[in-house]
Structures are given as structure tokens and as C-alpha cells.
Design a protein around this nucleic acid. Structure first.
Lengths: 143, 143
DNA sequence: TCTAATCCTATTAATACAATGGGAATAGTA
DNA sequence: TACTATTCCCATTGTATTAATAGGATTAGA
């Protein structure tokens, strides 16, 4: 069970946007440089973030991306779900009809609990929370 | 972030063994039938479980697999780790040298917390716990 | 008009996953 | 001993996903 790099990159990219919030649009080029990510790959990721409404874009020169909402309104789960989907562990947890055992399956209950634990962390943390933490630990430049 | 079927199958298979504990070896054939898993695929999975020491095998006629330890001594994380490895979220959480940002990276801290949440569930639950739960909810046959 | 940006679509190499299949080795049993 | 049921071992394969890379169209500011 490993996160895709898309999710990792998306999280780091949107944290950059959160950190830049209020200062206008931030370019993919800058984010890519700060985070050591291929520009072209990041473009695709930003595009996906945009299509889910998490960020807004400004085309043309001096364009870039801006968070669609203030950092304290965006939960980590919002970002996570863009690429990892609502399914964290197994299909049957999200889709009742996936397996006939579903109703009484103990294994499913296990995965449900794991999924709940993950979602609990991601839903209870906002981008702002992470930014604040970064400032306290003096590691904001390493977002 | 989805579990591999190997992990799902392994969990269901070892829960069958746990439920059968004390009654001698249980055959792959039986488990495969009970759980609707391809025998050949399950063979590979059982072999992996064996090589990590979670189960023991008895070859030849009337052979099969037995838990290497009583169900209350085996944690779900033991099974989980066979196929999902120690890495639940991102490489850098387990391997400090994976990324130069590691030391101050806030994104990493996020994934660390998620990982901790997952491991907390899996490490605090034993096979016996699951069996007991199954009996209470009368769904033991659906393990 | 130039430039810098997003946007859109296609392609690709590598990898992992989820099996499937054949047959050797082993052990109980009649 | 012969038979049978099992684990064990190894090879192959189809499919899907990932992680990019690439080219160029569109847009907007200076």
C-alpha cells in the first residue's frame, strides 16, 4: 500500500499554493522547481486539481494557479481523494454490491476500521494546519 | 491507495486458519473453496506466509497449513506486512535517506501520521480478536 | 507582436498485479 | 509397494497502472 507519486506531488504542490495564498497566482514552473517535479507531469496534476475545483487557474502571461478556497477551508482528504479516490483499502468498503459476502464479512470490518483511521487523519487536518506546523518547526521552505 | 488482492486473500486465508486452529492442518483446497480464491494463486500466497514464518506446512496427503502461533499471538500487521511491506504511505517514512528533504519536510509528517493511524489499528488487533468479533456477530462462516 | 503561461491530447517505457499452468517432491494409507 | 493428496517450485502471460515525456494549441498580459 503505497501512495502514487501523483498524490505526493499534488499534496506538495497544493501546500505551495497554500503557502502563497493571497499573493496572486503561482506558476507551475515555480512549483516544479521548488519541489523538483517535472513541469509537464505537474501540469497534468494541476489540471486534475483544477477539474475537481480545488484550485483555479489564470491563463496567459503572469498566470498560474490559486487555491479556490482559503487554506483553512481545504482538508487534506480533499487533495487525497483526487487521485486516491474514496477507496482507501478495499472496494467493498465503498461499494456494498461489490461482493456478496459484504454484509457479514469480518475481513471487511477490519479494512473498514483501517479506512476510518486514515480518513480521520486526513479529514481533520487542513492545509492551514500544515502550514502553521511548518512555521513552528521552521521548515516552511521545505513544504 | 488500494490493497492488493494478495493482501486481502492472505488476510481471509489466515483468518480461516485461525478459526480452524487446534484441529490440525487445513488444506489450500478447502480455503480456496470457502473463500472463492483460485487454488493456484492461493498456493503462492500461502507459500509467502510460510516463508515469513506466520504459518507452518505439512506436506503430503492429509497435509495443509497451520498457524505457527496461536491466533491471539498474531497481529493483523504481521499479515499485512507480508505483502504491503512496512511502507504504508510513502518511501521516505520508512527510509530516511530516500529524499534529501526528509528532515524538515512537512508533507512527510502528514504521511507519517497517516501511516501511524493505519499501523495503530493493525498492530492492536489479533486474529483472535477478529474471530471473537465474528462469533459475536454470528458471521464466523463469512470470515 | 512577443512572451509566458495554461490547456489538451497522444505516446511510451517500466512496473506490478493477478492470475494460470506444469510438474517435482513428499507423505500418509490401503 | 502403489496410489493419492498434498505442498512446493518455477515459468509464463495478459492486463492495467504509473510516471513520465512530448508537441503543439490557446490565452492573456506587456
Amino acid at each position: 500500500m503505497k501512495l502514487s507519486t501523483r498524490t505526493r506531488y499534488a499534496m506538495r504542490a497544493i501546500l505551495e499554493l497554500a503557502n502563497y495564498y493571497g499573493k496572486g497566482p503561482l506558476q507551475t514552473r515555480i512549483i516544479a522547481k521548488n519541489q523538483d517535479i517535472s513541469i509537464k507531469y505537474l501540469e497534468q496534476i494541476m489540471s486534475a486539481l483544477k477539474s475537481t475545483g480545488l484550485v483555479r487557474s489564470q491563463r496567459g502571461a503572469r498566470g498560474g494557479y490559486i487555491l479556490a478556497n482559503p487554506p483553512e477551508k481545504i482538508k487534506l482528504s480533499d487533495v487525497f481523494d483526487v487521485f486516491e479516490g474514496p477507496v482507501v483499502t478495499v472496494e467493498c468498503v465503498a461499494n456494498e454490491n461489490y461482493c456478496s459476502r459484504s454484509e457479514n464479512c469480518v475481513a471487511k470490518q477490519v479494512w473498514c476500521e483501517v479506512q476510518r483511521a486514515v480518513r480521520n487523519v486526513l479529514q481533520s487536518t487542513t492545509l492551514q494546519d500544515v502550514i502553521d506546523k511548518a512555521k513552528v518547526t521552521k521548515s516552511d521552505y521545505q513544504i
